[in-house]
Amino acid sequence: MTLAAFATVALIHLLAAISPGPSFVVSVRTAIAEGFPTATALALGFGIGAAVWAAAALAGLALLFELVPALYLSLKLVGAAFLLYIAVSMWRHAPKPLPAADARPPRGTLAAMRLGILTFITNPKAAIFFGAIFVGLVPAGTSLPWLAALVAIVFFNETLWYIVVARVFSLPRARAAYGRAKSWIDRSLGTLLAAFGLKVALT
């Protein structure tokens, strides 16, 4: 594998990570409502989830999904149900006031990482995405160090981007604006997340 091919994979994935999706919605909501440390742990969870799917795609899981469509469909439905669950939770808790800035966050580090991993891992489209990239850009017989580097850059891109999102949306001004319109914002983000869930299930 050439350095140019590696850089191309890294750039394509970074652009994909930046594009808004379910992870972005969950990250924004967590950063504003629970603060930077919790949202950073969430970002690490996203990075781990992305790395798992990248490794699975390199191992041939994307091809397995093509050979066994029922497996892919089952994972899609599970992923959609998980996103809808989060959306419903947002709607249910929308009227609750925002906790004080110095209050203990409702989610600990491990719980936030777990949410990040589950949010990412329940979207099997990630395996298809990585599989499509790797098929065209990763030559057969690529050495293990290069494969490990690919998984590492996927983890780095995903985690770094969502740490940036966490920093921006955890600033006091963002938190204050969110506090003034929490019910409306939570329901809007919940609706958007539900739409992503339905998209996962139907496409």
Rank of each mutant, 00 (worst) to 15 (best):
64 L>F: 14
64 L>E: 14
65 F>W: 13
65 F>P: 09
66 E>K: 15
67 L>A: 15
67 L>T: 08
68 V>F: 11
70 A>S: 09
72 Y>M: 09
73 L>G: 12
73 L>T: 15
74 S>K: 06
74 S>G: 14
75 L>P: 07
75 L>V: 03
76 K>R: 15
77 L>T: 13
78 V>T: 07
78 V>W: 01
78 V>C: 03
78 V>F: 11
79 G>S: 06
79 G>L: 12
79 G>N: 10
80 A>P: 09
82 F>K: 03
82 F>E: 04
82 F>A: 05
82 F>Y: 08
83 L>R: 00
85 Y>R: 08
85 Y>Q: 03
87 A>N: 10
87 A>W: 05
88 V>K: 08
88 V>Q: 04
91 W>V: 13
91 W>N: 03
91 W>C: 09
91 W>D: 05
93 H>Y: 05
93 H>Q: 13
94 A>E: 02
94 A>K: 01
94 A>Q: 02
95 P>V: 03
95 P>N: 10
97 P>M: 00
97 P>H: 00
97 P>A: 00
98 L>F: 05
98 L>K: 01
99 P>D: 05
99 P>M: 11
99 P>K: 04
99 P>C: 02
100 A>N: 03
103 A>D: 12
103 A>S: 10
104 R>F: 02
104 R>P: 05
104 R>T: 08
105 P>W: 02
105 P>A: 06
106 P>T: 11
107 R>Y: 09
107 R>W: 09
109 T>C: 03
109 T>W: 04
110 L>R: 11
111 A>C: 13
112 A>P: 01
112 A>T: 02
113 M>E: 04
114 R>Y: 09
114 R>T: 14
115 L>S: 04
115 L>A: 10
117 I>P: 01
117 I>H: 00
118 L>A: 12
118 L>Y: 02
118 L>V: 06
119 T>F: 00
122 T>I: 02
123 N>V: 00
123 N>T: 04
123 N>M: 06
124 P>Q: 04
125 K>D: 12
126 A>Y: 01
127 A>I: 03
127 A>F: 04
127 A>E: 07
128 I>D: 10
128 I>V: 15
129 F>T: 02
129 F>G: 05
130 F>W: 07
130 F>N: 05
130 F>P: 06
132 A>M: 10
132 A>T: 08
132 A>E: 07
132 A>S: 12
134 F>I: 07
134 F>Q: 06
134 F>H: 05
135 V>R: 07
135 V>E: 01
136 G>S: 12
138 V>F: 07
139 P>G: 11
139 P>S: 05
139 P>E: 11
140 A>V: 13
140 A>C: 09
142 T>I: 08
142 T>N: 09
142 T>G: 07
143 S>A: 15
143 S>C: 09
144 L>A: 14
145 P>F: 01
145 P>S: 00
146 W>M: 15
146 W>F: 15
146 W>H: 12
148 A>I: 12
148 A>Q: 14
149 A>E: 11
149 A>V: 13
152 A>M: 10
153 I>L: 10
155 F>V: 13
155 F>I: 12
157 N>C: 13
157 N>Y: 13
158 E>L: 14
158 E>H: 15
160 L>E: 00
161 W>A: 10
163 I>V: 14
163 I>L: 14
164 V>F: 12
167 R>P: 08
167 R>Q: 15
167 R>F: 11
168 V>T: 04
168 V>H: 04
168 V>D: 05
169 F>I: 14
